[in-house]
């Protein structure tokens, strides 16, 4: 009986260590695809919002909260795009690693130049984005900057593969330069 227990325990341990990749939860598909490009097999990525869904209005489904519970890093668009679900997911995840200010809380908008920031904003203008246009990923320059930020953060979380992430970033940047 004891032997079986230790065998099962050992197997579980093996399974756990075999998947020692960084668990990344990305709110949006474009963030997830960059992380996959840069992280390769060193990351395990979960994307919350489907490409067919509107990222402005999504419910904080319990499955999102569960994904965040298991995450090492939570990467989001920022500029209040996910304001309708992001704070609830992060708080309800009960995951100290993802709280604001921690390495596991990664706001992609911190690496871009925000445009269309209105000097005066109130809701008489409608449901506008008060911090500027959050759809900055349509600029290749912004995507490049965010990718550099992501590569740095992955290296910070898994220092043993810094070189790997930098090489992948270099390849990614070369591909970006090929864009017309």
């Amino acid at each position: 009986m004891k032997k079986i227990f230790f065998m099962v325990f050992g197997l579980l341990l093996t399974v756990t260590t075999a998947h020692a990749a960084i668990h990344v939860v990305a709110t949006l598909p474009w963030i997830g695809s960059i992380v996959r490009e840069l992280g390769g097999d060193k990351v395990q990525v979960t994307v919350l919002v489907k490409p067919s869904q509107d990222p402005h209005i999504i419910d904080a489904k319990p499955s999102f909260i569960l994904a965040a519970r298991k995450a090492d890093v939570f990467m989001y668009n920022g500029l209040d795009l996910e304001i309708g679900y992001l704070p609830l997911i992060v708080e309800s995840s009960r995951n100290a690693k993802l709280q604001p200010g921690k390495p596991g809380n990664f706001d992609c908008s911190r690496f871009v130049t925000v445009v269309e920031k209105n000097s005066t904003v109130d809701r008489s203008l409608g449901d506008v984005h008060p911090l500027g246009n959050p759809h900055y990923q349509y600029s290749p320059t912004n995507v490049q900057r965010v990718a550099e930020g992501i590569a740095d953060r992955l290296a910070q979380l898994d220092g043993t593969h810094t070189e790997f992430f930098q090489l992948r970033l270099k390849a990614f940047s070369e591909n970006m330069k090929q864009l017309p």
Partner: peptide, 14 residues
């Protein structure tokens, strides 16, 4: 990687 003025402006928005 360079954090830009969106961070410097303090507009965390979180």
């Amino acid at each position: 990687a360079i954090e830009t003025d969106s961070a410097a402006s303090g507009a965390s928005g979180f």
